[in-house]
Nucleic acid binder design. Structure first.
Lengths: 399, 399
DNA sequence: CTTCTTTTATTGACAGCGGAAAAGAAGTGC
DNA sequence: GCACTTCTTTTCCGCTGTCAATAAAAGAAG
């Protein structure tokens, strides 16, 4: 069976051990006693679960970790040894592939991007494999094995099956990407929707760490949303969830490619902003960057467009908050470059639409460098590795 | 401790046993083998978990239950003995209290309603206690003990604490209703938001049985929504969730009491419909029933108002579906009396706004007699009883 | 400097849950 | 009656996590 080279499995046989590891992963060095509290387990159980993880090197005792200068015996802190394992994260967009090599703590060691010539599955797979193999050879210098590969694709993705059901940008339908990729790279492969992948990264290593209910809103070429409810990323019964971009906010608004009017994406996506800035100012801006510059130079027409985008985003966040009551909403994405232009409108529109106690929700931003999407993919690989929630193993194709 | 008379606890000590009981409760008579499948347990585990439940009388073997006329040994079906325990469900509205006595399968045995003179906590509590005690004496004829009381209140309710944080209709703030009621009735009391309570009833005994992801939309005096994600009712980090009524659909729409424009409630609630029918027809209809009659008689102005309400409801459902991807949406509530007037618009607006695979969601209606809200409250009591998720016990006030 | 208090960590005994395998039970078809 | 199938139960067993007791590592108190 388990034919992958050097693939001793992760020694968290029990769900509790995986939970403990995840807690330590998200919350830095921790005392066993505190782990016990957070996991609602007895200290003894923690000791026993931690031991094999230390013996295999996934956890280490923090030597200088002497905390609590007050009473009692000081705690022996435990943390995850990031260098113990490596992972690859790959984000496939319509015109390029971004790949990162991360450690077990999802810290990026190397990042690479390659333009994508051919969007068809075979073409993507070829480019992807080259990039992955390149990173795999480079990874050899880091003294740890690569334990898994995560791939993030926008669209309707079935993670359990490793199947890309439909991706509009790539024009794919029912591509068994996990199996295909696993065959060429010889490692376990996890495939997930890009926004959900980013949400996992945020949940474990970012602004959502420790929260059981939060939402991640991405603003950029599209408007996306990842949802975490009771500590789990929402995937929806049909693999579709968080489609915040097509909430319709104004029946008199601009037409959207989805057929409706006044969708958030039809108002606040990059292409919508470029279109509206052109129409509103007469200046023939070529892309989002130029539109942004025009607004930053103070052009009132352009600023108005951004203000409206902020209104739409704030309204959309209000809808999410009213429906799910998250503890926090994290706004991220390339669109944050324009944040100063619509921060106020987002806040106002959110405050106006949030109902009752939902308004207590903490709305904040989190910058998102371009490798972040690929890092999200790596996070899903780490998640699969820990859960031993078997990703697509190279060989056996079970059903 | 456990001082409640005749309160031998429910003998499902393990989560698995509670899960098994819930499965049998929702899915009628079942063979142990099928229970094992649904619960992802071994048949042996089911046998062992079922035995004490049968010994205590909560489950019974269906004598005539010989299924599967085909091959193999016929199954011995097991079902919940509804008559083994009784529960009370109470719904508190602004001007009346509705109470039902149900059995363990949440079938209504008696229903009562009493007008409410005084909305202040003390007044409500007095009326509620009278009604509950009346039902408790009547319950003595049914040969089973009442095991718990559920109370449903609209607004912001913290079920874990049994606390009504804020109820606009009652003008309550931070009323520890569960403790207060438990003291006067001497039984465990569960307090929950009314829509969530109804959602529990739907999840266990109604159109949501067996589904892990669905939404319940109630149309009536207000527009509410209960959400079930991965088999659990969503309560939100701050106790607010499913506030579908204040999704804003049209910035040019009618003003809502929440301060916004074009909220679903400002278009499709009973009061909004009455207001708009008056304005649109010139007929001074007194209430929703008259408005409905006018529309049913074919008045085009009135019909238009209902059509617009249908549009708003369909849009709201579309938003829920885009965000959460439920398997099914159940439309219910007193507003269903007008369903023939806006069914088409709901369907169309939903279809137009649902994105991609989310459109596969099954949207259906489910009638809702007036006692149903109280039945929802009883369902929460049953849920607390099974989970032994301790509701508010009469005596000890821990924390 | 010794002793007490406080908190953390570990150990070993133990209970209980759930699985595997095998046997038993209750039918149909031949 | 016999073979076959499927459901149910029994027995045994491993494993997980709790409990209670103990060790360990400090500061505080006298």
């Amino acid at each position: 069976m388990r034919s992958t080279p050097s693939s001793e499995a992760f020694p968290a046989h029990t769900p509790a051990a995986a939970q403990i590891f995840t807690i330590v992963l998200s919350h830095g060095p921790l005392a066993r006693a505190e782990i016990a509290q957070r996991a609602a387990l007895s200290p003894a159980a923690v000791t026993k679960a931690v031991r094999p993880l230390i013996e295999t090197g996934y956890l280490v005792e923090d030597v200088d970790g002497r905390s609590r200068p007050g009473l009692g015996r000081p705690a022996n802190l435990v943390r995850v040894d990031g260098g113990r394992a490596l992972f690859l994260g790959v984000k496939v967009t319509g015109d390029e592939i971004i790949a990162v090599l991360t450690d077990l703590r999802c810290r990026i060691r190397i990042a690479r991007r390659t333009p994508l010539a051919d969007r068809r599955p075979a073409g993507v797979l070829a480019t992807l494999s080259d990039l992955v193999l390149e990173l795999l050879t480079e990874a050899e210098g880091f003294g740890a094995a690569v334990k898994g590969v995560g791939i993030a694709v926008s669209g309707d993705v079935d993670r359990a099956e490793g199947l890309v059901r439909y991706s509009p940008f790539l024009e794919w339908r029912d591509v068994p990407l996990a199996d295909l990729a696993a065959m060429t790279v010889g490692l376990p492969v996890t495939v997930d929707n890009d926004v959900r992948a980013l949400t996992v990264a945020e949940q474990w290593f970012g602004a959502g760490a420790g929260l059981s209910d939060f939402a991640l809103v991405t603003v950029g070429a599209g408007i996306g949303c990842g949802l975490v409810v009771r500590g789990r990323v929402v995937a929806g019964a049909h693999g579709v969830a968080g489609e915040i971009g097509h909430l319709s906010l104004d029946p008199a608004g601009p037409r959207c490619h989805c057929g409706n009017r006044g969708c958030v994406e039809a108002i606040a996506s990059e292409s919508a902003i470029v279109r509206d800035v052109r129409a509103g100012t007469g200046v023939d801006v070529a892309d989002a960057a130029e539109a942004l510059e025009l607004a930053h130079r103070g052009d009132p027409g352009a600023r108005k467009v951004y203000a409206r985008a902020g209104w739409a985003i704030g309204r959309a966040i209000g809808s999410v908050v009213n429906l799910l009551g998250p503890e926090r909403v994290i706004i991220s994405g390339e669109g944050l470059a324009a944040y100063d232009l619509f921060a106020e409108q987002i806040r106002d529109a959110f405050a106006a639409s949030a109902f009752g106690a939902a308004a207590r929700c903490d709305v904040r931003t989190h910058p998102l460098p371009f490798e972040e999407w690929a890092r999200g993919a790596a996070a899903t690989a780490i998640q699969s590795f820990i859960a031993s929630d078997p990703p697509k193993e190279p060989k056996d194709h079970k059903e």
